[in-house]
Amino acid sequence: MSDQDHFTLIPLAIDPESTAICPAHPSHVSRALQAELEALNNLHTALKALDAPLPVPPPPMPVNPKRSGQITKAREAGNGEYRKQKYDGAIKLYNLGLSLALARPPWEPSQLVREEVHALYSNRAQAHMQMGNWPDAAVDAEASVAAKSQGNAKAWFRRGKCLLEMGRLQEAKGAVAKALEFEGEEKELAELLREIDARIAKEGASA
């Protein structure tokens, strides 16, 4: 951005049928331009599917309650299955909820996406843990804390627990220590940390 009155003309062409924008000379195109044009075309498709009085995205708030309702329903159905100890079914329902939550149009509030996604990931981690599926559970728990790191003690606990189960003691310790930073003195987390420390001490003694 050198000057507000100047710009660099980029040779662009438009596909008459799909109205997709593409470079006019596809032979020598930088990767950044290609990625940007792809993002532009994706956004354009998303905008065309928009159902709003104006042809532009409405303000982030208020949110269309339809999708939120579907996601909540999927999560609650998943929780029901979980309580019946049908972990497979629960995971399928959580998957559904996650795909719905992540398919929200990009201009909807990201905070809302975080809220929805963290609960779903955390619950799915728990279901995976019940099945002894530690690596999946560990990844889900990590995704959950990435979406919401504060006030998400359950997911932190699950992450630490899974790493402990897989024998990655140092990583588990790191995760739980970080969790304690975010959550303050959570009782369960502190206990888990003690457990991990005991395991480390034991491994150190036997090695």
């Binding site: 956004l43 982030p60 992540l102 201009w107 909807e108 990201s110 905070q111 990844v139 990590e142």
Partner: peptide
């Protein structure tokens, strides 16, 4: 406002994809 949410959502989704 819309652009802000798009940018924030991009950050979140990139992070989740990285973890996935």
């Amino acid at each position: 406002q819309s652009a802000n949410e798009i940018a924030a959502n991009k950050v979140l989704r990139d992070r989740l994809e990285e973890i996935e």
